[in-house]
Each structure stands twice: as structure tokens, then as C-alpha cells.
Amino acid sequence: MIEMQNLSFGYSGTDPLLADMSLSLQPGSFHFLTGPSGAGKTTFLRLCYAELLPSAGRMSAFGQDVRGLSRDGIAALRRRVGVVHQDTQFLDHLPVAENIALPLIVSGEPVDMGALGDLLAWVQMAGQARALPPELSGGERQRAALARAVVMSPDLILADEPTGNLDWDMSMRLLQLLIELNRSGKAVLIATHDLNLIRAAKQQVQARVLRIAGKRLQLAGADL
């Protein structure tokens, strides 16, 4: 789905943040991405959904070179990649249910209210369907963000520190939802620095752990 070959990226022209990265994300795979704060985890995810373009190297998404994508092509790519952003990114004037259905609305797809209700129930948000995002707790926002990320039934789910502000119980709940999605065939990539979360996940799924260190992507050791 996502192929990177010797990819580099830098916000300034001279000093790259990420260098010489190669990776292949396969359907149904489960990856964690770790690394210290500021290492470039979020930047790596932004490259995956083409919010940023690589400075050097090759990257293709679903068989297409991301550099050659038109703006509509980028929009189409993002409909195949569900993203749970660190800061959730909701439209505060719309109720939770509409925020979750937003990818369908802007794509012109019909909104199946029954399926939307099931999705809300799956993330245990049925009671908050009419609430506005600012009224939600941190855990509720993350679960609503996950629901929005999967509403288009994407092939790949990217989650950026999805448990960053959650307590352990809530983190486990969210992890279970992501594992369920992976078992249904979706590829999952979670950027996190929470090693306990990674250990808990590895007890249930075959997960590869990648680490960004010294600007490069490495496969993490067996201790994880």
C-alpha cells in the first residue's frame, strides 16, 4: 500500500529531519512507530497521507507516485487512509455524529444512519451522538476520531499518539478497537512512545515495531 525507498524529508532545504528511509506497508499489517519526541513520527505519518512530500527518494501510495498526484488525487488517497490525529481535528460547530460522518458527506457518499449508529456504538459513543466536540472528554474525542477514521472503510489506519492523553484503561479500550480493525484486514500504523501499549498489543497481534533514531527508520529490538 505504502512503499518508501530511500526517502528523505526536511522542513528546511539543508538539514533533513528524516533520511534514507525505506518501508513497505502491506495490507493487514500492524506496525508501531516509536522514537523520542521531535524525532519525526508525526512528520512520517504526514508523509504517508501526502500532507508533506518527500524531499528525496521515492514514495508511492496504492501504486501511485505521490509526487505525481493532483490535488483531487491527494483527496482520493486520503479517503483510503483513515487518520486519528493527535489533536483529533474536529469541526467544533458540528455534533459528534456529523463529525464522524464528515468524510462520507464531503465525498458525496450516502450516510447510512443505521451503520453510523453501529459505528458510534462500537466506539461506545452512542450516547454522545448529538454532543459537540468541545463537550467531550479526551478519551471520547480519541474514540470519536477513530470512528471518523474508519467510517470510509479505509485500507490503512494511521494513529498519531492516540493514547497520549488517556489513562491506561481507556488506552487499552482504544487499542482493542484498533486490533479489531486489523483483524478485519485493515493495515494499522500507530505512532507512540508508550512502550507498555506496544507490549500489550504484541501479546495479541503480530506487530512490527519501527523506531526513528538518528533520522533513520530502524526495526526495534526483540525487547519490545
Binding site: 497521507y49 500532507e51 490535488r71 483531487d72 483527496a75 482520493a76 488517497l77 486520503r78 479517503r79 487518520v83 490525529h85 481535528q89 474536529f90 469541526l91 464528515l102 468524510p103 464531503v106 465525498s107 471518523r148 470510509m152
Partner: peptide
Amino acid sequence: RVLRLIGARD
């Protein structure tokens, strides 16, 4: 920005 991120066309 949010609309673009979730796949809205221009």
C-alpha cells in the same frame, strides 16, 4: 485544513 485532511476535494 480538516476538510482537506479527511479527503474533501477543493
